[in-house]
Design a protein around this nucleic acid. Structure first.
Lengths: 177, 177
DNA sequence: GGTCTCATGTAACTCGTTACATGATTAA
DNA sequence: TTAATCATGTAACGAGTTACATGAGACC
């Protein structure tokens, strides 16, 4: 139940946030780490409130609901961080396709790998820009969010370099043996 | 519908494979890229056969069904590789937790990061061993599978190094300012 | 007055996980 | 003979996606 803890953890850090606020956080910094849709977030906020882990602390204009974490919620967050082990489930569509590039022919495979390294270079640029735009290290969320952004940058770099290397391997195999 | 194409692609490469055979491929080489459970695989094989993309080519002992791809299946595979763009959906539980390590205190955060770099070093060892055990480059699946394994190794290395770096950042922040 | 952003919610569907259930064949 | 491996299938549930639906407030 990772989404549950993502939402709960954000409410803990961002007291007074609404579902709409969380949605923006998911789109920007958390996107590198966990994606969520609008309907998921609102649904989970409702369930967390029903279970007493968060509560509606205030209501604003346009039906806005501002949430705050409860003691039970803080305890659950600590339990999740310290008493559960994360799962390393990999599900990576671009990399899955690589597995089958042989079925499209070597020339097409090389072109697809080129397109991927370009896409990755673009995503890396976006992250670097984001990293420079946000004032890190001010508070805990920023500090740990900064660690996650650094991870995102390393990830994109590694992957871009891999795509370039793989492209050369495919080209060499096509030309040579 | 990535699982569908993962199963379809494997049947294309491994003519005569059964659901049970695919299950092993998913557990070993494909695990770095796409995970699937037994019930998903059998379900998808049934649906692919219903849709005419694969067919039961032979039946073996113990109810074994050996599948073969059809022309419609090969066309669908080509279409998927060349006419669709992959999605970069990241959903990474260990990294999500990092986002909230501040809520457990700096000492606990450092310990959690230590545990993670150890786990990653172990997974890297497993991949290196796998890489040495399997005879790559013999056929297309092995060649492209080898590219994916190289990716897996780079991924683990990057991640292990990141965890060590992050641990030092947390320790420095805790000691210093 | 019109458009943009803020703001929430639900319904239908697909995908993924866990657990159960069953049985044949092989090798020690 | 008994344990391991091979082999398939389904049922219930939980998680994630897409689309629809609605409306209030802010800005120009």
């Amino acid at each position: 139940m990772s989404l549950r803890h993502a939402v709960l953890g954000l409410i803990a850090e961002l007291e007074g946030a609404s579902g709409y606020d969380l949605l923006k956080v998911f789109d920007v910094s958390l996107a590198n780490v966990w994606t969520a849709t609008q309907s998921q977030i609102y649904g989970e906020l409702g369930r967390l409130a029903d279970d007493g882990l968060i509560r509606v602390a205030a209501e604003g204009p346009r039906g806005r609901k501002e949430y705050a974490i409860t003691d039970a919620g803080r305890a659950e967050m600590r339990r999740w961080l310290t008493e559960t082990r994360p799962r390393y489930l990999r599900r990576d569509e671009p990399m899955l396709r690589v597995f089958f590039f042989g079925q499209a022919g070597a020339a097409t495979a090389a072109a697809l790998l080129d397109a991927e390294s370009d896409a990755l270079a673009g995503m890396l640029d976006e992250l670097v820009e984001l990293d420079e735009r946000i004032p890190w290290k001010e508070d805990d969320l920023s500090f740990y969010g900064g660690l996650a952004i650094e991870y995102g940058k390393r990830f994109m770099e590694m992957r871009r370099d891999w795509a370039r290397w793989a492209r050369d391997e495919v080209a060499a195999r096509d030309a040579g043996d």
